[in-house]
Design a protein around this nucleic acid. Sequence first.
DNA 1: TAGTAGTATTATGTATAACATAATGCTAAC
DNA 2: GTTAGCATTATGTTATACATAATACTACTA
Lengths: 234, 234
Amino acid sequence: MESTTVNTFIQMDTSSLVDKVEANLVQLLVDRKLKIGDVIPTEIDLSKNLGVSRTVTREALLRLRMRGLIETKKKKGSVITSPDIFSIIGKSLDPHLLDQETLKEIFEMRLVLEIGMADFLFQNITAEHIKELKEIVKNEPDTSEDYVFHIDHEITFHGKLYEITGNQTLKKFQKLLLPVFDYVHNSGLLKKPATIKKFVSHKGLVDILENGSPELFRNAMRNHLENHFLRIFS
Amino acid sequence: MESTTVNTFIQMDTSSLVDKVEANLVQLLVDRKLKIGDVIPTEIDLSKNLGVSRTVTREALLRLRMRGLIETKKKKGSVITSPDIFSIIGKSLDPHLLDQETLKEIFEMRLVLEIGMADFLFQNITAEHIKELKEIVKNEPDTSEDYVFHIDHEITFHGKLYEITGNQTLKKFQKLLLPVFDYVHNSGLLKKPATIKKFVSHKGLVDILENGSPELFRNAMRNHLENHFLRIFS
DNA sequence: TAGTAGTATTATGTATAACATAATGCTAAC
DNA sequence: GTTAGCATTATGTTATACATAATACTACTA
Protein backbone atom coordinates (compact mmCIF):
# COMPACT_ATOMS: atom_id res chain seq x y z
CA MET A 1 0.00 0.00 0.00
CA GLU A 2 1.25 3.48 -0.82
CA SER A 3 0.69 6.56 1.25
CA THR A 4 -2.93 7.69 1.33
CA THR A 5 -2.07 11.12 0.04
CA VAL A 6 -0.62 9.71 -3.12
CA ASN A 7 -3.63 7.49 -3.60
CA THR A 8 -5.92 10.50 -3.82
CA PHE A 9 -4.39 11.43 -7.16
CA ILE A 10 -6.45 10.52 -10.16
CA GLN A 11 -4.71 8.62 -12.92
CA MET A 12 -4.61 10.77 -16.01
CA ASP A 13 -6.04 9.38 -19.19
CA THR A 14 -2.98 9.44 -21.42
CA SER A 15 -4.50 7.38 -24.24
CA SER A 16 -4.55 8.88 -27.70
CA LEU A 17 -7.61 9.52 -29.78
CA VAL A 18 -6.87 6.47 -31.88
CA ASP A 19 -6.75 4.38 -28.72
CA LYS A 20 -10.19 5.57 -27.76
CA VAL A 21 -11.72 5.00 -31.16
CA GLU A 22 -10.21 1.53 -31.27
CA ALA A 23 -11.58 0.65 -27.85
CA ASN A 24 -14.90 2.10 -28.89
CA LEU A 25 -15.15 -0.10 -31.95
CA VAL A 26 -14.01 -3.23 -30.11
CA GLN A 27 -16.65 -2.56 -27.49
CA LEU A 28 -19.24 -2.54 -30.24
CA LEU A 29 -18.09 -5.98 -31.33
CA VAL A 30 -18.05 -7.34 -27.80
CA ASP A 31 -21.54 -6.11 -27.15
CA ARG A 32 -22.59 -8.03 -30.21
CA LYS A 33 -24.10 -4.91 -31.62
CA LEU A 34 -22.09 -6.01 -34.62
CA LYS A 35 -21.96 -9.67 -35.58
CA ILE A 36 -19.70 -11.66 -37.85
CA GLY A 37 -20.38 -10.93 -41.48
CA ASP A 38 -21.82 -7.51 -40.82
CA VAL A 39 -20.35 -4.69 -42.81
CA ILE A 40 -19.28 -1.66 -40.83
CA PRO A 41 -19.82 1.89 -42.14
CA THR A 42 -17.34 3.59 -44.40
CA GLU A 43 -14.39 5.46 -43.00
CA ILE A 44 -16.07 8.75 -43.75
CA ASP A 45 -19.34 7.80 -42.07
CA LEU A 46 -17.49 6.51 -39.02
CA SER A 47 -15.44 9.67 -38.85
CA LYS A 48 -18.56 11.81 -38.95
CA ASN A 49 -20.36 9.78 -36.32
CA LEU A 50 -17.36 9.61 -34.03
CA GLY A 51 -16.44 13.23 -34.56
CA VAL A 52 -12.83 12.56 -35.51
CA SER A 53 -10.79 12.91 -38.63
CA ARG A 54 -10.61 10.21 -41.25
CA THR A 55 -6.95 9.65 -40.42
CA VAL A 56 -7.76 8.62 -36.87
CA THR A 57 -10.55 6.36 -38.02
CA ARG A 58 -8.24 4.76 -40.54
CA GLU A 59 -5.57 4.06 -37.92
CA ALA A 60 -8.12 2.49 -35.60
CA LEU A 61 -9.47 0.33 -38.43
CA LEU A 62 -5.94 -0.67 -39.33
CA ARG A 63 -5.45 -1.91 -35.78
CA LEU A 64 -8.64 -3.93 -35.88
CA ARG A 65 -7.51 -5.39 -39.16
CA MET A 66 -4.18 -6.40 -37.65
CA ARG A 67 -6.05 -8.02 -34.79
CA GLY A 68 -8.00 -10.05 -37.29
CA LEU A 69 -11.30 -8.55 -36.28
CA ILE A 70 -12.18 -7.11 -39.65
CA GLU A 71 -11.29 -7.53 -43.27
CA THR A 72 -11.16 -4.59 -45.61
CA LYS A 73 -12.10 -4.67 -49.27
CA LYS A 74 -11.95 -1.75 -51.58
CA LYS A 75 -15.26 -0.16 -52.35
CA LYS A 76 -17.30 -2.55 -50.14
CA GLY A 77 -15.81 -1.30 -46.88
CA SER A 78 -14.93 -3.55 -43.96
CA VAL A 79 -16.67 -6.68 -42.72
CA ILE A 80 -16.48 -8.29 -39.31
CA THR A 81 -14.57 -11.57 -39.30
CA SER A 82 -14.03 -14.27 -36.73
CA PRO A 83 -10.57 -13.69 -35.35
CA ASP A 84 -8.12 -16.54 -35.67
CA ILE A 85 -5.52 -15.49 -33.15
CA PHE A 86 -2.95 -17.98 -34.19
CA SER A 87 -2.86 -17.13 -37.84
CA ILE A 88 -2.59 -13.48 -36.88
CA ILE A 89 0.31 -14.13 -34.58
CA GLY A 90 1.87 -16.32 -37.21
CA LYS A 91 2.00 -13.43 -39.61
CA SER A 92 3.96 -11.32 -37.21
CA LEU A 93 6.14 -14.01 -35.69
CA ASP A 94 9.52 -13.85 -37.30
CA PRO A 95 12.01 -16.34 -35.83
CA HIS A 96 14.88 -14.20 -37.04
CA LEU A 97 13.85 -11.58 -34.56
CA LEU A 98 13.79 -13.85 -31.51
CA ASP A 99 16.80 -14.20 -29.28
CA GLN A 100 18.43 -17.56 -28.61
CA GLU A 101 17.06 -17.87 -25.11
CA THR A 102 13.49 -17.53 -26.33
CA LEU A 103 14.08 -20.01 -29.13
CA LYS A 104 15.34 -22.49 -26.58
CA GLU A 105 12.35 -21.93 -24.37
CA ILE A 106 9.96 -22.44 -27.24
CA PHE A 107 11.62 -25.77 -27.90
CA GLU A 108 11.15 -26.64 -24.25
CA MET A 109 7.55 -25.67 -24.53
CA ARG A 110 7.10 -28.05 -27.39
CA LEU A 111 8.55 -30.78 -25.24
CA VAL A 112 6.08 -29.96 -22.50
CA LEU A 113 3.18 -30.03 -24.92
CA GLU A 114 4.02 -33.29 -26.59
CA ILE A 115 4.58 -35.04 -23.29
CA GLY A 116 1.40 -33.63 -21.85
CA MET A 117 -0.61 -34.68 -24.87
CA ALA A 118 -0.30 -38.37 -24.06
CA ASP A 119 -3.62 -38.78 -22.30
CA PHE A 120 -5.49 -37.02 -25.08
CA LEU A 121 -3.77 -39.13 -27.67
CA PHE A 122 -4.74 -42.42 -26.09
CA GLN A 123 -8.22 -41.12 -25.51
CA ASN A 124 -8.83 -40.17 -29.14
CA ILE A 125 -6.73 -42.51 -31.20
CA THR A 126 -8.41 -44.92 -33.64
CA ALA A 127 -7.24 -47.85 -35.71
CA GLU A 128 -7.36 -45.55 -38.70
CA HIS A 129 -4.93 -43.16 -37.04
CA ILE A 130 -2.50 -45.95 -36.28
CA LYS A 131 -2.64 -46.97 -39.90
CA GLU A 132 -1.85 -43.47 -41.05
CA LEU A 133 1.04 -43.14 -38.64
CA LYS A 134 2.50 -46.43 -39.79
CA GLU A 135 2.30 -45.19 -43.35
CA ILE A 136 4.23 -42.06 -42.38
CA VAL A 137 7.06 -43.89 -40.64
CA LYS A 138 7.23 -46.73 -43.15
CA ASN A 139 10.41 -45.64 -44.89
CA GLU A 140 12.23 -44.63 -41.79
CA PRO A 141 15.44 -46.42 -40.78
CA ASP A 142 15.03 -48.73 -37.83
CA THR A 143 17.89 -47.65 -35.63
CA SER A 144 19.12 -44.30 -34.53
CA GLU A 145 22.59 -44.66 -36.05
CA ASP A 146 23.39 -42.00 -38.57
CA TYR A 147 19.75 -41.12 -38.66
CA VAL A 148 19.38 -37.78 -40.34
CA PHE A 149 16.49 -35.64 -39.24
CA HIS A 150 14.47 -34.54 -42.18
CA ILE A 151 12.54 -31.53 -41.11
CA ASP A 152 9.63 -32.24 -43.44
CA HIS A 153 9.29 -35.76 -42.16
CA GLU A 154 9.47 -34.49 -38.61
CA ILE A 155 6.67 -32.06 -39.26
CA THR A 156 4.46 -34.64 -40.91
CA PHE A 157 4.82 -37.10 -38.06
CA HIS A 158 4.49 -34.77 -35.11
CA GLY A 159 1.82 -32.76 -36.87
CA LYS A 160 -0.21 -35.93 -37.16
CA LEU A 161 0.04 -36.42 -33.41
CA TYR A 162 -1.31 -32.93 -32.73
CA GLU A 163 -4.10 -33.67 -35.16
CA ILE A 164 -5.07 -36.86 -33.35
CA THR A 165 -5.64 -34.99 -30.11
CA GLY A 166 -8.66 -33.48 -31.82
CA ASN A 167 -7.82 -30.12 -30.32
CA GLN A 168 -7.84 -27.57 -33.13
CA THR A 169 -6.31 -24.86 -30.99
CA LEU A 170 -3.40 -27.09 -30.11
CA LYS A 171 -2.89 -27.95 -33.74
CA LYS A 172 -2.94 -24.29 -34.71
CA PHE A 173 -0.44 -23.56 -32.01
CA GLN A 174 1.90 -26.14 -33.41
CA LYS A 175 1.49 -24.70 -36.88
CA LEU A 176 2.30 -21.34 -35.43
CA LEU A 177 5.59 -22.54 -34.00
CA LEU A 178 6.64 -24.48 -37.08
CA PRO A 179 8.61 -21.60 -38.59
CA VAL A 180 10.54 -21.40 -35.37
CA PHE A 181 11.51 -25.07 -35.51
CA ASP A 182 12.28 -24.77 -39.17
CA TYR A 183 14.50 -21.80 -38.50
CA VAL A 184 16.40 -23.53 -35.75
CA HIS A 185 16.98 -26.57 -37.93
CA ASN A 186 18.26 -24.51 -40.82
CA SER A 187 20.38 -21.94 -39.10
CA GLY A 188 23.38 -23.69 -37.67
CA LEU A 189 22.06 -23.51 -34.14
CA LEU A 190 21.96 -27.28 -34.06
CA LYS A 191 25.13 -29.01 -32.97
CA LYS A 192 26.24 -32.50 -33.86
CA PRO A 193 23.67 -35.15 -32.98
CA ALA A 194 23.90 -36.02 -29.35
CA THR A 195 24.30 -39.69 -28.77
CA ILE A 196 21.72 -41.04 -26.41
CA LYS A 197 22.11 -44.64 -25.39
CA LYS A 198 18.60 -45.76 -26.18
CA PHE A 199 17.01 -43.52 -28.75
CA VAL A 200 13.28 -43.90 -29.33
CA SER A 201 12.36 -43.53 -32.98
CA HIS A 202 9.06 -42.52 -34.53
CA LYS A 203 8.38 -46.18 -35.14
CA GLY A 204 8.90 -46.81 -31.46
CA LEU A 205 6.39 -44.11 -30.59
CA VAL A 206 3.78 -45.56 -32.93
CA ASP A 207 4.33 -48.97 -31.43
CA ILE A 208 3.68 -47.61 -27.97
CA LEU A 209 0.59 -45.78 -29.15
CA GLU A 210 -0.74 -49.09 -30.43
CA ASN A 211 0.18 -51.36 -27.58
CA GLY A 212 1.44 -49.29 -24.69
CA SER A 213 0.13 -46.81 -22.14
CA PRO A 214 0.20 -43.04 -21.65
CA GLU A 215 2.94 -43.51 -19.06
CA LEU A 216 5.16 -45.39 -21.45
CA PHE A 217 4.44 -42.91 -24.19
CA ARG A 218 5.45 -39.94 -22.07
CA ASN A 219 8.82 -41.42 -21.24
CA ALA A 220 9.38 -42.45 -24.82
CA MET A 221 8.47 -39.01 -26.13
CA ARG A 222 10.76 -37.36 -23.64
CA ASN A 223 13.60 -39.54 -24.78
CA HIS A 224 12.76 -38.92 -28.41
CA LEU A 225 12.60 -35.14 -28.15
CA GLU A 226 15.56 -34.78 -25.86
CA ASN A 227 17.63 -36.00 -28.72
CA HIS A 228 16.55 -32.93 -30.66
CA PHE A 229 16.79 -30.76 -27.67
CA LEU A 230 20.32 -31.58 -26.70
CA ARG A 231 21.44 -30.54 -30.14
CA ILE A 232 20.55 -26.90 -29.58
CA PHE A 233 22.64 -25.95 -26.61
CA SER A 234 25.95 -27.60 -25.98
CA MET B 1 0.65 -29.00 -61.74
CA GLU B 2 -1.34 -26.54 -63.82
CA SER B 3 -1.19 -26.14 -67.56
CA THR B 4 2.10 -24.73 -68.80
CA THR B 5 0.37 -21.92 -70.58
CA VAL B 6 -1.14 -20.66 -67.38
CA ASN B 7 2.19 -20.94 -65.61
CA THR B 8 3.75 -18.45 -67.97
CA PHE B 9 1.63 -15.70 -66.48
CA ILE B 10 3.46 -13.53 -64.00
CA GLN B 11 1.83 -13.04 -60.63
CA MET B 12 0.87 -9.43 -60.24
CA ASP B 13 2.22 -7.61 -57.24
CA THR B 14 -0.99 -6.52 -55.56
CA SER B 15 0.61 -5.34 -52.33
CA SER B 16 0.04 -1.76 -51.30
CA LEU B 17 2.70 0.82 -50.74
CA VAL B 18 2.33 0.44 -47.00
CA ASP B 19 2.92 -3.30 -47.36
CA LYS B 20 6.15 -2.64 -49.18
CA VAL B 21 7.41 -0.08 -46.72
CA GLU B 22 6.59 -2.39 -43.83
CA ALA B 23 8.43 -5.31 -45.43
CA ASN B 24 11.30 -2.99 -46.18
CA LEU B 25 11.66 -1.92 -42.57
CA VAL B 26 11.30 -5.45 -41.20
CA GLN B 27 14.00 -6.59 -43.59
CA LEU B 28 16.26 -3.93 -42.10
CA LEU B 29 15.68 -5.40 -38.66
CA VAL B 30 16.27 -8.96 -39.82
CA ASP B 31 19.48 -8.01 -41.55
CA ARG B 32 20.60 -6.52 -38.25
CA LYS B 33 21.18 -3.21 -39.94
CA LEU B 34 19.11 -1.98 -37.04
CA LYS B 35 19.66 -3.46 -33.62
CA ILE B 36 17.70 -3.39 -30.40
CA GLY B 37 17.93 -0.01 -28.75
CA ASP B 38 18.70 1.85 -31.95
CA VAL B 39 16.53 4.82 -32.72
CA ILE B 40 15.09 4.91 -36.20
CA PRO B 41 14.84 8.14 -38.20
CA THR B 42 11.88 10.45 -37.84
CA GLU B 43 8.77 9.90 -39.89
CA ILE B 44 9.70 12.80 -42.10
CA ASP B 45 13.23 11.57 -42.72
CA LEU B 46 11.98 8.08 -43.47
CA SER B 47 9.39 9.45 -45.85
CA LYS B 48 12.02 11.43 -47.72
CA ASN B 49 14.44 8.53 -47.95
CA LEU B 50 11.78 6.04 -48.99
CA GLY B 51 10.14 8.44 -51.37
CA VAL B 52 6.64 8.06 -49.95
CA SER B 53 4.27 10.31 -48.09
CA ARG B 54 4.31 10.64 -44.34
CA THR B 55 0.90 8.98 -44.25
CA VAL B 56 2.30 5.75 -45.65
CA THR B 57 5.31 5.83 -43.38
CA ARG B 58 3.08 6.36 -40.37
CA GLU B 59 0.89 3.38 -41.23
CA ALA B 60 3.92 1.16 -41.70
CA LEU B 61 5.37 2.30 -38.36
CA LEU B 62 2.02 1.69 -36.71
CA ARG B 63 2.12 -1.88 -37.93
CA LEU B 64 5.62 -2.41 -36.59
CA ARG B 65 4.46 -0.99 -33.29
CA MET B 66 1.58 -3.44 -33.17
CA ARG B 67 4.01 -6.25 -33.88
CA GLY B 68 6.04 -5.12 -30.91
CA LEU B 69 9.08 -4.36 -33.01
CA ILE B 70 9.31 -0.71 -32.11
CA GLU B 71 8.17 1.63 -29.39
CA THR B 72 7.26 5.19 -30.17
CA LYS B 73 7.82 8.13 -27.89
CA LYS B 74 6.90 11.66 -28.67
CA LYS B 75 9.78 13.86 -29.64
CA LYS B 76 12.41 11.11 -29.38
CA GLY B 77 11.05 9.10 -32.29
CA SER B 78 10.90 5.31 -32.38
CA VAL B 79 13.32 2.80 -30.94
CA ILE B 80 13.78 -0.85 -31.79
CA THR B 81 12.58 -3.17 -29.07
CA SER B 82 12.84 -6.90 -28.52
CA PRO B 83 9.47 -8.27 -29.51
CA ASP B 84 7.60 -10.09 -26.77
CA ILE B 85 5.17 -12.19 -28.75
CA PHE B 86 3.02 -13.08 -25.84
CA SER B 87 2.36 -9.61 -24.59
CA ILE B 88 1.46 -8.68 -28.15
CA ILE B 89 -0.97 -11.54 -28.42
CA GLY B 90 -2.32 -10.68 -25.01
CA LYS B 91 -3.28 -7.23 -26.15
CA SER B 92 -5.32 -8.61 -28.99
CA LEU B 93 -6.74 -11.62 -27.21
CA ASP B 94 -10.20 -10.78 -25.99
CA PRO B 95 -12.00 -13.77 -24.43
CA HIS B 96 -15.32 -12.16 -25.20
CA LEU B 97 -14.59 -12.59 -28.86
CA LEU B 98 -13.77 -16.30 -28.69
CA ASP B 99 -16.38 -18.94 -29.27
CA GLN B 100 -17.15 -21.63 -26.69
CA GLU B 101 -15.35 -24.38 -28.57
CA THR B 102 -12.11 -22.40 -28.60
CA LEU B 103 -12.46 -21.57 -24.92
CA LYS B 104 -12.84 -25.26 -24.18
CA GLU B 105 -9.79 -26.09 -26.25
CA ILE B 106 -7.70 -23.50 -24.48
CA PHE B 107 -8.64 -25.10 -21.19
CA GLU B 108 -7.59 -28.44 -22.61
CA MET B 109 -4.33 -26.89 -23.64
CA ARG B 110 -3.72 -25.73 -20.13
CA LEU B 111 -4.27 -29.27 -18.95
CA VAL B 112 -1.74 -30.54 -21.47
CA LEU B 113 0.80 -27.96 -20.36
CA GLU B 114 0.50 -28.52 -16.67
CA ILE B 115 0.72 -32.27 -17.04
CA GLY B 116 3.67 -31.99 -19.39
CA MET B 117 5.49 -29.65 -17.03
CA ALA B 118 6.08 -32.36 -14.45
CA ASP B 119 9.59 -33.27 -15.49
CA PHE B 120 10.72 -29.68 -15.57
CA LEU B 121 9.20 -29.06 -12.18
CA PHE B 122 11.04 -31.89 -10.51
CA GLN B 123 14.21 -30.92 -12.30
CA ASN B 124 14.16 -27.31 -11.08
CA ILE B 125 12.39 -27.35 -7.76
CA THR B 126 14.24 -26.29 -4.62
CA ALA B 127 13.53 -26.42 -0.90
CA GLU B 128 12.78 -22.72 -1.10
CA HIS B 129 10.09 -23.32 -3.72
CA ILE B 130 8.45 -25.98 -1.59
CA LYS B 131 8.38 -23.55 1.28
CA GLU B 132 6.72 -20.90 -0.83
CA LEU B 133 4.14 -23.33 -2.15
CA LYS B 134 3.31 -24.47 1.37
CA GLU B 135 2.80 -20.87 2.35
CA ILE B 136 0.37 -20.39 -0.52
CA VAL B 137 -1.78 -23.42 0.30
CA LYS B 138 -1.61 -22.94 4.07
CA ASN B 139 -5.13 -21.63 4.53
CA GLU B 140 -6.75 -24.01 2.16
CA PRO B 141 -9.37 -26.51 3.44
CA ASP B 142 -8.12 -30.06 3.60
CA THR B 143 -10.86 -31.91 1.82
CA SER B 144 -12.66 -31.23 -1.40
CA GLU B 145 -16.13 -30.93 0.13
CA ASP B 146 -17.81 -27.65 -0.57
CA TYR B 147 -14.48 -26.33 -1.61
CA VAL B 148 -15.00 -23.10 -3.45
CA PHE B 149 -12.53 -22.21 -6.11
CA HIS B 150 -11.19 -18.78 -5.57
CA ILE B 151 -9.84 -17.61 -8.86
CA ASP B 152 -7.13 -15.45 -7.29
CA HIS B 153 -5.89 -18.31 -5.19
CA GLU B 154 -5.91 -20.56 -8.22
CA ILE B 155 -3.81 -18.12 -10.16
CA THR B 156 -1.30 -17.68 -7.37
CA PHE B 157 -0.79 -21.39 -6.94
CA HIS B 158 -0.63 -22.47 -10.55
CA GLY B 159 1.32 -19.37 -11.51
CA LYS B 160 3.96 -20.40 -9.00
CA LEU B 161 4.25 -23.77 -10.70
CA TYR B 162 4.88 -22.15 -14.07
CA GLU B 163 7.46 -19.97 -12.43
CA ILE B 164 9.29 -22.94 -10.96
CA THR B 165 9.82 -24.46 -14.39
CA GLY B 166 12.23 -21.59 -15.00
CA ASN B 167 10.87 -21.20 -18.50
CA GLN B 168 9.99 -17.55 -19.00
CA THR B 169 8.16 -18.20 -22.23
CA LEU B 170 5.95 -20.75 -20.56
CA LYS B 171 5.22 -18.35 -17.75
CA LYS B 172 4.33 -15.62 -20.19
CA PHE B 173 2.06 -17.98 -22.02
CA GLN B 174 0.19 -18.71 -18.83
CA LYS B 175 -0.12 -15.02 -18.13
CA LEU B 176 -1.49 -14.65 -21.60
CA LEU B 177 -4.21 -17.16 -21.02
CA LEU B 178 -5.19 -15.88 -17.60
CA PRO B 179 -7.88 -13.53 -18.90
CA VAL B 180 -9.43 -16.49 -20.64
CA PHE B 181 -9.61 -18.51 -17.44
CA ASP B 182 -10.85 -15.53 -15.55
CA TYR B 183 -13.55 -14.96 -18.13
CA VAL B 184 -14.70 -18.56 -18.02
CA HIS B 185 -14.86 -18.53 -14.25
CA ASN B 186 -16.89 -15.33 -14.17
CA SER B 187 -19.28 -15.84 -16.99
CA GLY B 188 -21.66 -18.60 -16.01
CA LEU B 189 -20.01 -21.10 -18.31
CA LEU B 190 -19.10 -23.16 -15.29
CA LYS B 191 -21.66 -25.68 -14.12
CA LYS B 192 -22.07 -27.03 -10.62
CA PRO B 193 -18.90 -28.58 -9.28
CA ALA B 194 -18.49 -32.09 -10.60
CA THR B 195 -18.01 -34.62 -7.85
CA ILE B 196 -14.94 -36.69 -8.38
CA LYS B 197 -14.39 -39.53 -5.99
CA LYS B 198 -10.85 -38.75 -5.05
CA PHE B 199 -10.08 -35.08 -5.59
CA VAL B 200 -6.47 -34.00 -5.38
CA SER B 201 -6.10 -30.62 -3.71
CA HIS B 202 -3.29 -28.09 -4.05
CA LYS B 203 -1.93 -29.42 -0.80
CA GLY B 204 -1.86 -32.87 -2.32
CA LEU B 205 0.10 -31.58 -5.28
CA VAL B 206 2.68 -29.88 -3.09
CA ASP B 207 3.07 -33.06 -1.10
CA ILE B 208 3.81 -35.00 -4.25
CA LEU B 209 6.27 -32.38 -5.42
CA GLU B 210 8.11 -32.81 -2.14
CA ASN B 211 8.05 -36.57 -1.80
CA GLY B 212 6.70 -38.08 -5.01
CA SER B 213 7.74 -38.54 -8.63
CA PRO B 214 6.91 -36.94 -11.96
CA GLU B 215 4.63 -39.87 -12.77
CA LEU B 216 2.65 -39.43 -9.60
CA PHE B 217 2.48 -35.70 -10.14
CA ARG B 218 1.10 -36.05 -13.65
CA ASN B 219 -1.74 -38.26 -12.52
CA ALA B 220 -2.48 -36.03 -9.59
CA MET B 221 -2.50 -32.91 -11.75
CA ARG B 222 -4.79 -34.57 -14.24
CA ASN B 223 -7.20 -35.43 -11.50
CA HIS B 224 -6.95 -31.97 -10.03
CA LEU B 225 -7.59 -30.11 -13.27
CA GLU B 226 -10.28 -32.43 -14.52
CA ASN B 227 -12.36 -31.20 -11.66
CA HIS B 228 -12.22 -27.74 -13.20
CA PHE B 229 -12.57 -29.08 -16.63
CA LEU B 230 -15.69 -31.10 -16.08
CA ARG B 231 -17.42 -27.99 -14.86
CA ILE B 232 -17.26 -26.33 -18.22
CA PHE B 233 -19.09 -28.71 -20.45
CA SER B 234 -21.92 -30.80 -19.02
C1' DT C 1 -33.41 -9.71 -76.14
C1' DA C 2 -28.94 -10.89 -74.52
C1' DG C 3 -24.49 -9.79 -73.98
C1' DT C 4 -20.78 -6.75 -73.67
C1' DA C 5 -18.13 -2.32 -73.83
C1' DG C 6 -17.84 1.66 -71.78
C1' DT C 7 -18.97 5.00 -68.18
C1' DA C 8 -20.28 6.58 -63.58
C1' DT C 9 -20.00 5.91 -58.87
C1' DT C 10 -18.03 4.95 -54.58
C1' DA C 11 -14.87 3.83 -50.87
C1' DT C 12 -10.27 2.89 -49.94
C1' DG C 13 -5.27 4.24 -50.92
C1' DT C 14 -1.92 8.02 -51.17
C1' DA C 15 -0.12 12.75 -51.01
C1' DT C 16 0.35 17.33 -49.06
C1' DA C 17 0.01 21.05 -45.91
C1' DA C 18 -1.04 22.96 -41.65
C1' DC C 19 -1.68 23.16 -36.81
C1' DA C 20 -1.87 20.89 -31.87
C1' DT C 21 0.53 18.75 -28.31
C1' DA C 22 3.96 16.81 -25.42
C1' DA C 23 8.71 15.98 -24.34
C1' DT C 24 13.16 17.74 -24.24
C1' DG C 25 16.79 21.10 -24.04
C1' DC C 26 18.23 25.78 -23.44
C1' DT C 27 18.39 30.25 -21.33
C1' DA C 28 18.03 33.71 -18.18
C1' DA C 29 16.47 35.53 -13.89
C1' DC C 30 16.58 35.10 -9.01
C1' DG D 1 22.66 26.50 -8.56
C1' DT D 2 18.01 26.05 -9.01
C1' DT D 3 13.96 26.81 -11.48
C1' DA D 4 10.50 29.30 -14.44
C1' DG D 5 9.72 30.08 -18.87
C1' DC D 6 10.67 29.82 -23.73
C1' DA D 7 12.30 27.47 -28.01
C1' DT D 8 12.64 23.40 -30.43
C1' DT D 9 11.36 19.14 -32.34
C1' DA D 10 8.86 15.00 -33.60
C1' DT D 11 4.64 12.79 -33.10
C1' DG D 12 -0.60 13.39 -33.00
C1' DT D 13 -4.51 15.24 -35.46
C1' DT D 14 -7.18 17.66 -38.93
C1' DA D 15 -8.44 18.95 -43.57
C1' DT D 16 -8.37 18.59 -48.48
C1' DA D 17 -7.46 16.78 -52.86
C1' DC D 18 -6.49 13.34 -56.06
C1' DA D 19 -5.43 8.18 -57.52
C1' DT D 20 -7.06 3.69 -57.92
C1' DA D 21 -9.77 -0.39 -57.95
C1' DA D 22 -14.16 -2.59 -57.48
C1' DT D 23 -18.83 -2.43 -58.37
C1' DA D 24 -23.13 -0.81 -60.51
C1' DC D 25 -25.24 1.11 -64.27
C1' DT D 26 -26.13 2.38 -69.01
C1' DA D 27 -26.42 2.14 -73.67
C1' DC D 28 -25.05 0.19 -77.79
C1' DT D 29 -24.65 -3.67 -80.90
C1' DA D 30 -25.54 -8.26 -82.83
